[in-house]
């Protein structure tokens, strides 16, 4: 069983959803992002999503765009991002790590080599934003060969006829993009989520994580009541960016502040179903 499947199975046994916090690799520098990454499991992260910086993140809002820009200025590379995962794995062999990014840096690294290097570094899953199912044969066989879960995005615009096609070949979990829009802007309502998730459940047994617009512990709780996991990105990067100075340097407590926020989000996720709405 993959680390991702094992983690979701364990959470199901505990009858709770997953908190999946996001960090942009090397934002604002390697040491700070490494400190955040290392601290996340203790702060309550069940899985961790790491953003691979790209110059042209077309699906991202201003907050993650700025994070990518800082990361690239700090020297982020594909190899550097994989190096962070390798270092993380020296102390943690259980928390699943998912990389999220855009296709071009992966192509530039070589798709096959990228999957091999990612697997060797301890990466468990991949989300490639600009690789729709129509083009997925480019990557899917290589991900499969290296036992990396290929996590698909489902959007509100994905209709029922298209759903099974998009999900073919997907594994690990399903990432539901809860709004039509870019990251860090609008938040989906509980009603919207309640209507959307059963559509996915009808065609797949994979866990469903909800992202885009999940910012507060309450919204994270909302997400795990509707689905199986909550991805929080822009809200954490907001906290991080508030702690860096005009020269882009992190303050001594930047990582601690981000991790405190992860802790609060974890609290929200862990108490979400305590009211008896139940899994």
């Amino acid at each position: 069983m993959s680390r991702i499947a094992a983690r979701f199975a364990a959470l199901r046994a505990q009858r709770r959803g997953a908190l999946i916090p996001f960090l942009e690799a090397w934002d604002p520098d390697r040491a700070t992002s490494m400190e955040i990454l290392r601290g996340m499991p203790d702060a309550g992260a069940d899985l961790i999503e790491i953003g691979m910086p790209f110059t042209d993140p077309m699906a991202d809002g201003p907050i993650i765009q700025a994070a990518a820009k800082r990361a690239l200025a700090a020297g982020a590379t594909v190899a550097g991002t994989l190096g962070m995962v390798r270092e993380f794995r020296e102390h943690d062999s259980e928390t699943p790590i998912v990389l999220m990014g855009y296709l071009n840096p992966v192509l530039s690294h070589g798709v096959e080599r990228f999957c091999a290097d990612a697997a060797a570094s301890g990466v468990d899953g991949l989300i490639i934003v600009d690789l729709p199912t129509e083009e997925a044969d480019l990557l899917l066989p290589h991900a499969r060969a290296h036992a990396i879960d290929f996590i698909r995005l489902i959007a509100p615009t994905t209709d029922d006829a298209r759903l099974p096609k998009v999900l073919s070949g997907s594994s690990g979990f399903i990432y539901y993009v809860s709004i039509t829009g870019i990251t860090g802007t609008r938040t989906a309502s509980a009603t919207e989520l309640a209507a959307a998730i059963p559509r996915i459940r009808a065609v797949s047994d994979l866990p469903v994580a909800i992202g885009f617009g999940v910012r507060t512990p309450e919204q994270a709780a909302e997400a795990v009541r509707a689905g199986d996991g909550a991805v929080v990105a822009s809200a954490l990067i907001d906290t991080l960016s508030a702690g860096i100075d005009a020269q882009g340097r992190a303050a001594p407590d930047t990582a601690r502040r981000v991790l405190d926020q992860v802790r609060a989000l974890a609290q929200g996720v862990r108490t979400a179903r305590a009211t008896g709405v139940a899994a």
């Binding site: 934003v129 690789l131 129509e134 083009e135 995005l153 615009t157």
Partner: peptide
């Protein structure tokens, strides 16, 4: 039919846009 000219072209967009 996949929008390719040889190896070039295609449809590399996020799922939200794909149905559009």
């Amino acid at each position: 039919t996949r929008g390719k000219f040889g190896d070039y072209g295609g449809r590399f967009v996020a799922e939200t846009l794909m149905p559009l």
